[in-house]
């Protein structure tokens, strides 16, 4: 018996279908994906009802992506804050497993990203980077924290803790590796994030990876649209604790965002001069959104 040819969704779209009775019918029309936002583990449309046209590298229309608004940004902050307690309180082992699971899911869906014109090598790097951060979750506290030998009869221990809710402007390129490189370190350390990106197809496809990876809803929230429009609301939001501008190329916007963030004393990472997203990231992306908590207790009989 000849093996049945399995057809991918795209090839089905262009192929002529043959019914069981052998009668030829019209070509099957592909079911397109609606690119919505990713907030609190769900995929809502923008509250504003707005979309914007996304084209591929040849200028061909591919989607009407949701264009996030101020209200969406605020909803994302609520979702990120709501998720923070449980995620930051999850064991380091558990966080590591969840992030490793993202890598597994990404590996399984690599074709979806190459179909979106992400180079295969970049997908590889993004997967490997997730694995790298997955391994950090239960090691960082030993590297950056520790016992302090105070001059007295006290137990004294410093431990890293997440800053809270971090707003991130994702780099425009590389789309997938850039996004993974700014999201993974923040969540590996127990923060929850809101990412603004102008690469909606890659970002929302990654959201689908996240949604099937045991990442609790609200830990990563993705807003597609204009950083210039949405980021100022996050930079000035008093329930956001950190702001990552490393991927932002617009120096004027970065300055305005950093100034807005000063009002609530957010931890800010400034734009990197010439970001090399494939280089070893070091500890800085993780330690930027960590607080050090030092606990004292007397010793005595």
């Amino acid at each position: 018996m000849p093996a049945k040819k399995k057809e991918s969704a795209d090839s089905v779209a262009s192929a002529t279908r043959v019914t069981a009775g052998g009668v030829a019918t019209a070509p099957r029309l592909a079911v397109r994906k609606t690119y919505k936002l990713f907030i609190g583990g769900a995929f809502p449309r923008s509250e504003s009802g707005r979309t914007y046209v996304v084209a591929d590298s040849k200028g061909q229309f591919v989607a009407n992506a949701a264009q996030a608004s101020r209200k969406d940004a605020r909803d994302a902050v609520l979702a990120a804050r709501a998720a923070f307690g449980k995620w930051s309180g999850a064991t380091a082992y558990n966080k590591g497993q969840v992030i490793y699971r993202i890598a597994e899911m990404l590996e399984g869906r690599r074709d979806e990203f190459t179909a979106l014109e992400v180079p295969a090598a970049e997908v590889d790097e993004a997967i490997d980077r997730l694995v790298w951060y997955a391994g950090w979750t239960d090691k960082l506290a030993q590297v950056v924290g520790g016992a302090n030998p105070v001059a007295g009869p006290y137990f004294n221990l410093s431990s890293p803790e997440p800053s809270g809710v971090v707003a991130v402007v994702a780099p425009s390129a590389p789309t997938l590796l850039g996004l993974v490189s700014v999201v993974a370190p923040a969540i590996a350390t127990g923060n929850t994030v809101i990412v603004i990106t102008d690469a909606p197809r890659v970002a929302i496809t990654l959201a689908e990876v996240l949604a099937t990876s045991d990442v609790p809803g609200g830990v990563v929230n993705i807003l597609t649209g204009s950083a210039a429009e949405v980021a100022p609301w996050l930079a000035s939001h008093s329930d956001v604790n950190g702001l990552d501008l490393t991927g932002l190329a617009d120096a004027k916007l970065a300055l305005e965002l950093e100034q807005a963030a000063a009002e609530t004393l957010k931890r800010v990472r400034r734009p990197a001069a010439a970001p090399d997203w494939s280089a070893d990231p070091g500890l800085a992306p993780m330690t930027a959104y960590l607080e050090t908590k030092t606990v004292w207790h007397p010793k005595g009989l």
Partner: peptide, 17 residues
């Protein structure tokens, strides 16, 4: 909070962040 004093308070030391 950055410093938590349990059963003590206002203790400082050069080695303690």
């Amino acid at each position: 909070a950055g410093v938590v004093w349990a059963n003590t308070f206002n203790k400082f030391d050069p080695t303690s962040p």
